[in-house]
Design a protein around this nucleic acid. Structure first.
Lengths: 345, 345
DNA sequence: TTGAAAGCGCTAACAT
DNA sequence: ATGTTAGCGCTTTCAA
């Protein structure tokens, strides 16, 4: 046992300083701004750090520097994989800069989200990542009052005053509708996630509706079903669509989970996809390839959004000026679940 | 503008104290141990807190109390949904006690995991959640040296010195093998996740092997394929199994993702499941129901593990004594991908 | 390049 | 029941 650190108690910067025969200030500098310290001194400090197994105390650091090196993200849910990839990319980007990611969930509720924002703020996060724009102005006020940088993901930049990193949900959805129509479909239904407080879901519906209108088609109200994002709900919605006497020949789904649910319903009703019914998804999560037939869907730039969010936020935090918003491209992904419309005999 | 808080700077406990005309100690008590404060005083403090929009500074709190109200979890990956449900349950349990969950990933690497443990420790987490037992003793030493409570999930309690909350991977896997054999299968292969450093994967393989041996069958070395947990890898592995001249009639998979991959391979090779080939999964994630045919699999107590981990850890942190480990039940889940062996003509 | 020392905001032991 | 006060471990002027 050495006599520099009292056993039990984790070593402090003072223990390191004593062992390296320097002041605590020098230890701090060696660790944070190595170039401002003489090489020999730095080496000495390093040795002591290693020997003691020293790790800066988080609270002390946060208190003194007013920085936590933590960024918080609030996503609607962890239950399905929709946000996992972006989160993973975000985390990797942050980790490269020694910043930790704190993840919270809002369960698609603006109130819960606001609570989580408070929570993250209380923990002193240096930045926040939010999904979409469906929230009260008060939520933004919280962030702005504290001057905490934040990024909004998944929605197309619509507001020059905020940092938004997303893509054109409406445009991509309209594109899907166009492709569906190109294959001869005229009887087109849609299963969407709940649109309330969900601008992405709303935009996707709007996009499809606009494309149909453009082609002089109209989306029948009863052929637009809103439900929660889950396999079961998607299945149930599709069942309703498919069991009515006159059924659609194509179902455009608001995301891949709903599309997979629709596929389940088709299987159970012995409706062949894509021969008798076309189904499209959105997001391109792994599930889209696991089902049979594989889903024709829209590839969303998950990884790029996550990585870009990390980089922009870090830049904003370090340089103090808000980076520009960015719109990322999506891609229509042809697989097997969308087919040509066949006349029914 | 009131003159109690300087604009820009977030209000401190001192601002609250001044406004409520009490000491900072009383404010602290009002917030942390309300019952030790006179009602009228407490109300006065509350009023000031509200008016000022005061939120305790995290760093100060952590530094003074040596507590962060944060628990860290290190999971192998967020990419698939395997750990999502347990995490969600854990988070809900913790949230009910005003404790925040910090999530980190190790990408199935013990070294990365150890790095993350250091990281969490440096951030002063009050407790840690780990998956499985595949790690170096040094990792445990880190935790124990700091006296930080930790729980190990997903593995069956094997060590009376540690808090483990899991289930019998080997037993459940053996049970699957027995059921498969009961349906007449004798040519049984297995696709497993990488077993190195992964005790769950290893236990599942061991369980199956033991059950086969029990029935005087033997697992051919070439019929046990190890690969990463991904759709693609599962598909590739199954392809190898199915394209050899003499192929198995049943494939037991180490988890649902691999099983879904195997199903894809079967589809592509036009091998009917379960008529010509049986496939089983493990974990019962949502994916298991989304594929066709739906996977016969093992239901794992995701939610209960997560919730129990939260409760046990909280108890340990607050009372100072390590709770007992627990073994949770699993359940064989009959769906569609396991069928009776048919003689090939 | 380095050191001395003043806090950062909060809690808890002790005093009243 | 409440106040006084001494730190908790670190960063950051300011001096040397």
């Amino acid at each position: 046992m050495n006599n520099f650190s009292l056993k039990g108690r984790p070593p402090t910067i003072e223990d390191v300083a004593r062992m390296a025969r320097v002041s605590t200030a020098t230890v701090s500098r060696s660790l944070n701004t190595p170039h401002r310290v003489r090489e020999a001194t730095r080496l000495e400090v390093e040795k002591a750090v290693l020997k003691l197994g020293y790790t800066p105390n988080f609270g002390g650091q946060a208190l003194a520097s007013n920085r936590t090196n933590t960024i918080g993200a609030i996503i609607p849910t962890m239950d399905n994989a929709i946000f996992a990839t972006a989160l993973q990319a975000l985390q990797e980007t942050l980790a490269a800069h020694n910043v930790t990611l704190l993840v919270a969930t809002s369960r698609y509720s603006p109130d819960e989200e606001e609570g989580q924002i408070r929570n993250l703020l209380a923990r002193g996060v240096d930045g926040v990542v939010l999904i979409g724009t469906g929230r009260a102005p008060s939520a933004y006020k919280l962030l702005e009052a504290r001057g905490v940088p934040f990024a909004i993901l998944w929605s197309i930049p619509s507001d020059t005053e905020r940092l938004m990193i997303g893509f054109d949900n409406a445009g991509a959805a309209a594109d899907v509708a166009v492709r569906v129509m190109e294959r001869g479909h005229r009887r087109i239904a849609m299963i969407s996630g709940l649109m309330q407080n969900n601008d992405r879901a709303t935009a996707r519906v709007d996009g499809v509706a606009a494309a149909l209108r453009e082609a002089d088609l109209e989306m029948r109200p009863s052929w637009l079903i809103e439900c929660r994002y889950s396999l079961n709900h998607g299945e149930r919605a599709a069942r309703r669509l498919l069991q009515s006497s006159s059924r659609p020949t194509a179902i455009i789904c608001g995301n891949d989970v709903l599309a997979a649910g629709a596929l389940m319903a088709a299987h159970e009703l012995s409706i062949a996809v894509p021969e008798e019914l076309s189904i499209t998804g959105f997001d391109d999560i792994e599930l889209a390839r696991a089902v049979f037939p594989q889903l024709t869907t829209v590839r969303v730039p998950h990884r790029r959004m996550g990585a870009a969010a990390g980089e922009c936020l870090l830049r904003w935090i370090n340089e103090g000026t808000r980076p520009k918003s960015m719109t990322l491209p999506t891609q229509f992904l042809e697989r097997q679940s969308l087919g040509y419309m066949r006349p029914r005999e």
